[in-house]
Design a protein around this nucleic acid. Structure first.
Lengths: 259, 259
DNA sequence: CGTCTGGTTGATCTAGATCAACAGGAGTGG
DNA sequence: CCACTCCTGTTGATCTAGATCAACCAGACG
């Protein structure tokens, strides 16, 4: 249960990049030695289960924008993000869409519709180049039956998702768009921030302006203006998908984030 | 696995009332014959587990407004709603609060913090008189260890909660306050509606105006005005906690609910 | 009896939606 | 190569939904 490679860099975003390089090299790379290591749901399986997993698993690279599974589609199994960032999106009938969540290496996605046996309620798409493993239905069914620990991992994952969603609901109900954006930036810093020892930060946004707007429940024009305001306040500087934050404390000041 | 009593009435709200009457009569009423029957998570337990459950279970009545468990509190086990309606609420530091969800007979609550072993992230309180069973930590731990079916029930429950939350997030991001209120009323009709064979409906609201406002992410003054607008449109009539909807189709018309 | 909480309404102000124009790529096809 | 469209992002002008501040009423309750 060691992680032989990829642990030289602990920086989240840097790691992602290296990961993609490493993992695409070997299609038959085993999950137990996968870089995501203990972060994935599959690390506690016994020997027999691992053999089963290797058989039912298929690794695949996705170009930016490619869909992993689509809303309304029949469930074909579950997916484990290995490299890159995957967006969880919901559409309505009028062509609107909202980015509900982001998935990172080690995260399992598409398992909700597997558990309910119903169609996917959301879409998943690669934001930037990504690597995702697919585990087919018979395999995951067998694994769940024989490994109660796996079910417990799913349980914990679901609890995390509910709490994340509740946080978001609360923010949506109580915060202004400006504060919602600040909260979002602060969470993105954690994952995508290149930190210079906790002083000034710099983020590579994984999403477009439109998606960023949908994540805070605003129109993209409004987001543009809020960004302008943050710039003139000297609180954050936006250039393309690069965001630089001179002082994270100043950004967070006065915003009751994730209460 | 039969339900000996309480199945004379299938009306959701009417049933709740009768339930409370029946259940308070016998403190030692067993879960397997509890009116919530197949709707609860505890109906598929074997004989040994049921004995265990009866020992670790304590039934209690709650007055309107009483808290079942409080945000920030250490987890003391899980709860099963037997009668009435329970509100799941989140507070922030400034005294604001948002009603995130409603729990009904058969629903298990407080299990998220049990699974994570951390403090409660939300509060639960009785909205109106309610009856709730408490199952202590040792009991639920033992039950989960011996009954994989119970874990599966929790899994499904969690999936439902995530999807409910995603629906809410999407609505919050895309709908106007008026449309959000309409969606909320439509869901409340399902639970609290006294239906006259699917024509005009009448709801007994389980929550105050302030809570109703928090559920759609608006101020209570704004809610008042929206209610006024719905009244002058003849779409719904509000009198205290009574809402009458002459035509449900007319209310739902043009609103993309729960996409 | 005063106090408190919950609800309604009014006046006002502003954050944010909407409509619209425009600029910079990125393809695509001649 | 250019011309074309398509897509993303920015900015301006305008309008309105909704927040805010405040007064007020009714019932609950010590």
């Amino acid at each position: 249960m060691t992680q032989p490679d990829c642990n030289a860099t602990s920086d989240a975003r840097g790691a992602t990049w290296i990961m993609v390089g490493v993992c695409t090299r070997s299609e038959s790379h085993s999950c137990v030695v996968c870089h995501v290591g203990r972060r994935s749901d599959w690390c506690e399986l016994d020997e027999a289960a691992n053999i089963l997993l290797e058989r039912g698993r298929r690794r695949r690279e996705y170009d930016s924008g490619t869909v992993v599974f689509a809303q309304g589609e029949f469930n074909k199994g579950v997916y484990c993000v290995s490299g890159g960032t995957v967006g969880i999106r919901r559409f309505d009938g009028d062509g609107n869409s909202v980015l509900l969540a982001l998935a990172y290496p080690g995260d399992t996605i598409g398992y909700r519709s597997f558990l309910t046996g119903r169609e996917h309620k959301t879409s998943a798409e690669a934001l930037g180049p990504a690597v995702v493993c697919h585990i087919d239905r018979p395999t995951i069914t067998a694994l769940l039956a024989g490994n109660p620990a796996l079910g417990r991992r799913f349980l914990k994952r679901l609890v995390g998702e509910v709490e994340h969603a509740h946080d978001a609901m609360f923010r949506q109900a109580t915060l202004s768009n400006r504060d919602k954006l600040i909260c979002l930036l602060l969470t993105l810093v954690r994952r995508h921030g290149r930190q210079h020892t906790d002083g000034p930060q710099s983020i590579d946004l994984p999403v477009s302006r439109r998606d960023l707007a949908s994540m805070i429940g605003a129109r993209h024009e409004t987001l543009s203006r809020i960004i302008g305001r943050l710039e003139s306040d000297g609180i954050a500087h936006f250039s393309g998908r690069q965001v630089t934050i001179p002082n994270v404390e100043a950004l967070a000041a006065g915003v009751d984030c994730c209460a």
